[in-house]
Design a protein around this nucleic acid. Sequence first.
DNA 1: TGTGCGCGGATTGTATAAAGTTTCGCCTGT
DNA 2: ACAGGCGAAACTTTATACAATCCGCGCACA
Lengths: 235, 235
Amino acid sequence: MAAKTRQKSDAPDASDRVSRIREGVTAAILEHRLLPGTKLGEDEIGEIYGASRTLVRTALQQLAHEGIVNIEKNRGAFVARPTPADAREVFEARRLIEPTIVDHAIDAVSPIWIARLQQHLTEEREAELRGDARASVRLSGEFHKLVAEMSGHSIYLGFLKELIARSSLIILLYRRHDTPACGTDHHAGIVAAIRKRDREAARAQMLSHLNEIEAELFLKDPAADELRLADVLGA
Amino acid sequence: MAAKTRQKSDAPDASDRVSRIREGVTAAILEHRLLPGTKLGEDEIGEIYGASRTLVRTALQQLAHEGIVNIEKNRGAFVARPTPADAREVFEARRLIEPTIVDHAIDAVSPIWIARLQQHLTEEREAELRGDARASVRLSGEFHKLVAEMSGHSIYLGFLKELIARSSLIILLYRRHDTPACGTDHHAGIVAAIRKRDREAARAQMLSHLNEIEAELFLKDPAADELRLADVLGA
DNA sequence: TGTGCGCGGATTGTATAAAGTTTCGCCTGT
DNA sequence: ACAGGCGAAACTTTATACAATCCGCGCACA
């Protein structure tokens, strides 16, 4: 009972059961196995993970707070379907936060961290080489999380986790071509800049990386029929 | 049943009971009526609001996600006690985000919004005049939230809500003198800049405002005895 | 034939009960 | 007198039972 006692609610390790559920569902969403709009029934999930609805509920509520699940009263939980407006907000926030994060990451440069980053790049390349799209999209997001962890700024890390998760849904919904989700080459360039402690290059590369991702999106209001209707009637 | 149907989990209106609990506890914490470290027993709160522990529990979990409550496994929920390191992170994040928020707010300038801002300044002054410290500290935070709402950027708004709530605790714990929590004069200056659509002035004033708040803090590890001990034994 | 109403199944929201863990007091032994 | 440990009470955690709500199907009626 040494280090396990102090764990925040946002605990990264899946020690308790609700975390296992949350991370399982999160992974499924981030790997695009669960598509936006999919109903996440409580009994259904509970049976999968061998847990009662109580635990499933808390996990779903956490996911709702992270913005990747919508809970509609008396209707249940659904995988979120970000609007184009949401998408623009998410990427604007990322453009604001992530350059600052890489800047901080450079303060923490050490052989251990460089090794971890390189290791991650290798995994990304391997996934891409064997055509594992699901692993690719997951690892692309995790690269950004890794840089945030390196920065040592827990608040930025928390914010970025939300933004990454939403980005994954956004890319799935609005990507124009089937280009690789998030260029590994860009990531390699960012790592190189971090390694050289070149703050300006790192910030600039992160920014252009984000811009390129967003540029590949087609952010026009989708399924105009139903959504227009909803807006009109809602107003 | 027109406009009420579409409400996010983070619903601003206190329509359902869990929201009422959450907002009640939040207000108590933000007004410094509940001090850091205070135990928030489920039965206790449930009896106050006439709700079962189930509802109290979900409310507390939401507050934990916002960072103003800590839930320790098998021990219960406590009002969070941010460390000096947390404080520095919170203010750094605010310095990054809030200037951008005022910039966006200027895009939304309209007579309605200006009126709301002025109205808010009036309330702040009145609270300060009658020496209502609790209302003052609450309104100070709400000013920043109001600007974020004005910006129309829901993600920034969500992030800022968290940061404001934590800031309130930080100010309570680490304020040097008993200076007014958050100068109303500064707020008036920011409103003036917004009104004139002077982006640079607005950003600059927001930044210096945040710097002055942080400058009034004494961010050294507090209660050296117990915390040092915890850190040493934890490592 | 098309529309509207009502009932039944299913699912979520809430409360309560059972189970597990921690904490504090008390008691015994040295 | 004091340290250590046992035990009960209080609390959180988890599970389950009950109530409320929603959705879809079918029937009646125009």
